[in-house]
Amino acid sequence: MTKDEALVAQDGDNDILTKLCSQKFLRLSIETNRSQSGDLDWTSLQAQQSVRTLISTIQIKMKPGDSLVTFSSLRVQYIEAADVAALVESLHQLKHLRYLALLETHISVLPGNIGKMKLLQFLDLRGCTKSVNLPDSIVMLSQLQFLYIPNIHMIPRGFRGLTDIRKLIGFPAHMDGDWCSLDELGPLSQLKNLFLNKLENVSAASFAANARLGEKMHLIELFLWCTSRLGDNGLIKENQGVSEEEQ
């Protein structure tokens, strides 16, 4: 039914470039291995200026200067196992994007102006092991509902304003400082799935109480994770932030 609007390239399809050059598509899904995809580069995709859904699980050749500017109609972008660092700075150009998944990519940061993506609802950074912190403007994504950030260490203050969030995976627990702490989870009353990391940073129950988990009537899944203080020898590691009395 969608043959005139969609291109789905899977294993065994060796004619991707020809199809991309001969027709305009609204949806692209390229899930074939690298040897079969040939010399597919970002320039080949940029000709598809009307595309609304882009799904790719292959290595696409990119060079400095490549951007997302031509994809002004994009609503869904799912890229896996590719070096998309060159594209990160132009992410904010995707004004209509609702769904952004950058899985197992080599990005180390998100653009500071990601807050301009006002319609973004889904952000998935699973497998992006080089990513450390989220930009301050992340708190401006008022329509965000799903956030997967298992490798993020710090979240900026103001996170409490994202009251539409339903699923939050990888929230790093902190008590104070310049970053988001557990008490900013208090107003997030729509949460259904919550995974908390680094709970060893919370030294008192009073801080945890500020998250108001007992008031989240929609919560159906809660995962609590503490980094182990034990080494391979079964002894407590040094410099783990515990007092002699706690040991």
Rank of each mutant, 00 (worst) to 15 (best):
D66L: 12
L68C: 06
L68F: 15
V69C: 08
S72D: 14
S72E: 15
S72G: 02
S73R: 11
L74C: 05
L74D: 07
R75C: 14
V76M: 11
Q77Y: 10
I79A: 08
I79P: 09
E80N: 11
E80D: 12
A81P: 04
A81C: 14
A82T: 13
D83N: 15
V84N: 01
A85M: 06
A85R: 12
A86M: 10
L87I: 05
V88Q: 06
E89G: 06
E89I: 01
S90N: 11
L91C: 05
H92L: 00
K95R: 13
H96C: 09
H96A: 09
L97K: 06
R98V: 11
Y99L: 09
A101L: 03
A101P: 01
L102A: 02
L103S: 01
L103D: 01
E104K: 08
S108I: 00
V109E: 12
L110T: 03
P111K: 08
P111V: 07
I114P: 10
G115D: 05
K116C: 15
K116R: 15
M117K: 08
K118G: 03
Q121T: 13
F122Q: 07
F122D: 12
L123C: 07
L125Y: 00
C128S: 11
T129V: 15
T129S: 15
K130H: 09
L134C: 06
L134R: 06
P135V: 00
P135N: 01
P135A: 00
I138H: 03
V139M: 05
V139E: 03
V139L: 05
V139H: 00
M140H: 10
M140W: 07
L141Y: 03
L141R: 04
L141V: 03
S142M: 08
S142T: 11
Q143C: 07
Q145G: 02
F146M: 10
L147N: 03
Y148N: 04
P150W: 04
N151I: 00
N151Q: 00
I152M: 12
H153V: 09
M154Y: 12
M154V: 06
R157W: 00
G158Q: 13
G158N: 10
G161Q: 14
L162W: 00
L162D: 01
T163L: 05
T163C: 05
D164Y: 06
I165E: 02
R166F: 09
R166G: 09
K167E: 12
L168N: 08
I169L: 07
G170I: 04
G170F: 02
F171Y: 02
A173M: 14
H174D: 08
D176E: 13
D176S: 15
D176Y: 10
G177I: 08
D178R: 13
S181L: 06
L182K: 04
D183W: 08
D183N: 13
D183P: 08
E184C: 01
G186H: 06
G186I: 00
P187S: 10
P187L: 08
L188A: 00
S189A: 11
L191D: 04
K192A: 07
K192C: 05
K192T: 11
L194N: 10
L194E: 10
